[in-house]
């Protein structure tokens, strides 16, 4: 379902079919996309990006936590048209860079190449180092990398997998201890 929704929006971004409700998005999108391969399989791109941002480690990764569905839901059902355009523009930019540098779409290049591309997006967002994060001004439009990362993080830690396996979930603690050893929790509490 999410996959189909996201693909449909991808198609809309390309101006293939225009409904009045989406006219704002499509007007902006027409300038962004040069050819019908500009976006590729958006859902698959989101899957790869989600797992790059929060990979499986000793705790589950973003895909296992259902993050791609969450991102897709937000992009198609919660974002404004303007936000959706900016998100899709980010995907298109990533695809264009992938084609230019590696002569293949984002999902088809190696993980090292995907990381190079995502590094570039992080640099452009001023989010690649602690120093650049501090130097960023919070105002203005949020760059694609941070839009994406924010959704991946929110989706992950509010998912059942993320809240119960990456964090510690205890809905009815029963009492309060204000000096509880961290080592007894391991990670952090879900909240």
């Amino acid at each position: 379902m999410q996959r189909r929704e996201l693909l449909k929006f991808g198609a809309l971004m390309l101006g293939a079919s225009v409904s009045p409700a989406c006219s704002r998005a499509v007007l902006s999108a027409e300038d962004l996309h040069r050819d019908s391969d500009a976006l590729g399989d958006v859902f698959r791109v989101v899957e790869v990006l989600s797992e790059l941002i929060l990979p499986a480690t000793d705790t589950p990764g973003a895909i296992e936590a259902g993050v791609p569905n969450f991102v897709s839901n937000v992009v198609t059902g919660w974002y404004t048209d303007a936000e959706r355009v900016r998100f899709m523009q980010g995907i298109a930019t990533l695809q264009a860079a992938s084609h230019a540098s590696f002569s293949a779409g984002f999902v088809d290049v190696t993980i090292e190449q995907q990381r190079q591309l995502l590094d570039q997006a992080a640099r452009e967002a001023g989010a690649d180092t602690a120093a650049s994060m501090q130097a960023r001004s919070s105002g203005g439009e949020k760059p694609f990398f941070l839009m994406l990362r924010e959704l991946v993080v929110l989706g992950y830690f509010t998912s059942e997998v993320g809240a119960t396996q990456a964090l510690s979930y205890n809905p009815v603690p029963g009492h309060y201890d204000g000096a509880y050893p961290v080592e007894q929790v391991g990670t952090h509490w879900s909240s």
Binding site: M133, V185, H188, W189
Partner: peptide
Amino acid sequence: SRMNWRTLGNVSPGYGAEYKEAILRPG
């Protein structure tokens, strides 16, 4: 309180395993 992923996720740089580890621990 100890900062959690809501703050840490926003202020930490980068992405990937190191980023994930940094934001799921108590800040």
